[in-house]
Amino acid sequence: MEKQPHLLLWKAVFVLIMIGLGFGIYAGSKSIDYTWRWERIPQYIINTEATTVRSPFDGTATIEKGNKLVVTSDYGDDPLVIKKFDNLLVNNGDLVFEGDPLVEVENWNIGPLTWGLVMTLQLSVVSLVFAVVIGLFAGLARISTNPALRYLSVTYIELIRGTPLLVQIFIFYFFIGTVLDLDRFTAGVAALSVFTGAYIAEIVRSGIQSISPGQMEAARSLGMNYVQAMVNVILPQAFKRTLPPMAGQFINLIKDSSLVSVISITDLTKAGREVVSSTFAPFEVWFAVALMYLVLTGALSWAIQRLEKRLSASD
């Protein structure tokens, strides 16, 4: 009970700091005379585009009940019927000539930022699947009793963790990509999965080693072979234990995927750059891009937290 007022106080402090930060951004943009044009952003996420439907022949427009536009041709062509439109540009009984605008139809269009988001999502999901497979096998090889497997795994992990991802992406695209004739997307996915796989391998290794050796002994003493013991006893426990670091790694993967924009994959970051050059509203665009990344990573951490809760039934 005694702690209550302090808690409230510190929550208030937090809110004040956040307000202060917001004000700082506002004041900062004021001081450089920046005009915020947030209204320019939504159209790059999703927009409606009006297309005008024009008359294909000379004729008479009639509006029938149910808001249906019918144009009957003067020369006996089949009548044109338009059932759905957003703006009517002719009146009932008007004479229309070929090429006259009849109605406007609005189409929903996905904007470049959303396409970027979809690309980022695709890159991340595909790379994630491969990274988990690579990481699982490299992690198992890392603790194998076979020296060849062990050294291979150590070499892989050290090589990947010792070089920057950006450099790896260039190597994958320009060297391996050229040798194996890979397209951009494949090269990007390969670089991201190989990179993330090395980190997952370490997570897998430490996860497996954190399970007491007695578990393996119990499983083997029941007649399970090594693979059965791994699959049924060790990995399920290790999986649960490695979820938090895995979540971090998955989130890193989503963020790291922004680096593939250097090989001209139009992911969210590259889309952002393109939109900046057509809107001249860099602040808004980058804030919007950041927010879209946050939506992805936030959804992922939420999903993993749900999974953790579900798995904690046996605790």
Binding site: S212, G214, Q215, A218, N232, V233, Q237, S314
Partner: peptide, 30 residues
């Protein structure tokens, strides 16, 4: 090993399985 059961000082039950799950696992898998 299927013929030779072993009981350990530290039990070594599989913590992610229920009591019944522990008992049934090996007959099912092996």
């Amino acid at each position: 090993r299927e013929e030779v059961g072993m009981v350990f000082q530290s039990f070594n039950l599989f913590p992610h399985k229920t009591a019944l799950g522990n008992v049934a696992l090996s007959p099912i898998k092996v």
